[in-house]
Write a protein that binds this DNA or RNA. Structure first.
Lengths: 231, 231
DNA sequence: TATTCTTATTGATATATATCAACATCGTGC
DNA sequence: GCACGATGTTGATATATATCAATAAGAATA
């Protein structure tokens, strides 16, 4: 956690989340006056589960993982955040605590906005409120899919899902440089890291993927999709 | 699906959800004009996953299960709804479809309110919007717990959780008359119904619970809690 | 460069869980 | 009361998955 960047203005920000387009100049100014920017090194924690929810984060650079700290020191990665995603939190209006931990995977810049300002905007700007509800609902739908993936697919299907997610959503290219550890993949798929390694190996042996150090290339997307669908 | 009850007025409704207390007389009248009441027999579907989201349901009588229809005809029960719970749905503001199925477990009366009216209220009444966000967040927090339970506990812990849920949240008494089938319990805990039966048997053999037909009594709550906590 | 620490990998094994098949029980309509 | 379908139960077995232990490979540090 270090090096606050030179502040630019929300008004002209090239990295701002779409939701802020719903604000007028005055509202945007309010946001601008109650935010600050931070740079996090890989592994550093942005929000810690259980701590007070005082800010929401907007990722402007890098990659962060959002995970629940569960039983016996086991984590469950819910999702990843990259620019220009906003990370709120279900503690808002409830207990004002974080219900997940957010940690930087790569060097990550986050813009932190005071929760009180967000609440104020929800109350005064109906379009903002509706958009937030929409986003919350989208996350919920995503969670439903995750529920089914984690409880009704077996290991190969879950790892196939993970690779498809990495290519399509997280890195947006193929091949990609994997910045997640095997343990991260285990936390994402709810399996042991040893089995993650074994399934990856079997995918490599069958030429579904190719790996060279941390560079991963998907060679047979169709087959990965098939495995993902057949469990 | 049958027997619409004689309509009473929302204003004087003894079974209305707290959220409607945030409405003024005019708004409540609007709701009253765009709602209808239905009685569902056990097993009947109230909302079907994939169908258009035209109404939200307020349960005024009975018990309903909310579940995702997943892979290979397997269902995952997310939660139960009893009076006076409101069932919205994450499709609102997104794709206007139901992302889960809701079915009556016991004879259930539901009051169905037009989604458009709910949206209108969200836009015009900030307190209503905030309360809805709060509820959505509470559900999300519940889903997080469910994630951990289902992915990080094994069968005994999950069944212990289920019995605690049944006693504390669903029936609110001990002993209780179990209106769920073994398959329902399997869908709730993400396990096979055979294993549900085996774990229940082991709990019975250890005198943690007692069963007589569909009447279940929890004899050793402390032990159930312990099993739930140790996985 | 040597050293230490973390991460990745592999194989052997134990365990948890699902599946399959057979049978019992219960309620319901005839 | 009987036949039937749905639900519940049990045991045997197969399979998926975790755990444990050992080693290897990298990355960070002195």
């Amino acid at each position: 956690m270090s090096n606050p960047k030179i502040d630019s203005d929300c008004k002209n920000c090239q990295r701002r989340n779409n939701i802020f387009a719903l604000l007028n100049e005055e509202e945007l100014k309010l946001v601008n006056e109650h935010r600050y920017e931070l740079v996090f090194n890989p592994g550093e924690i942005i929000f810690k589960q259980g701590s007070p929810l005082t800010h929401v984060a907007c990722i402007t650079e890098g990659l962060a993982k959002i995970y629940i700290e569960g039983l016996n020191r086991r984590n469950l990665i819910l999702s990843f955040a990259k620019p220009v995603q906003m990370i709120g939190g279900p503690g808002m209006f409830v207990d004002y605590r974080h219900h997940f931990t957010v940690a930087a995977v790569e060097e990550t810049t986050a813009c932190l906005v005071d929760t009180k300002i967000i609440e104020q905007l929800i109350e005064s700007n109906a379009r903002f409120a509706c958009d937030l509800l929409k986003r919350t609902n989208q996350v919920t739908i995503g969670n439903f899919n995750k529920f089914i993936h984690l409880t009704q697919k077996q290991m190969h299907g879950r790892i196939a899902d993970a690779f498809i997610l990495l290519e399509e959503e997280i890195y947006g290219r193929n091949p990609f440089l994997l910045s997640l550890s095997r343990q991260d993949l285990a936390d994402l798929t709810a399996m042991s890291k040893e089995n993650v390694i074994r399934v990856i190996k079997s995918f490599r042996d069958q030429d579904f993927i190719k790996t060279d150090g941390n560079v991963v290339e998907i060679l047979n997307k169709k087959e990965l999709v098939r495995i993902s669908e057949t469990g």
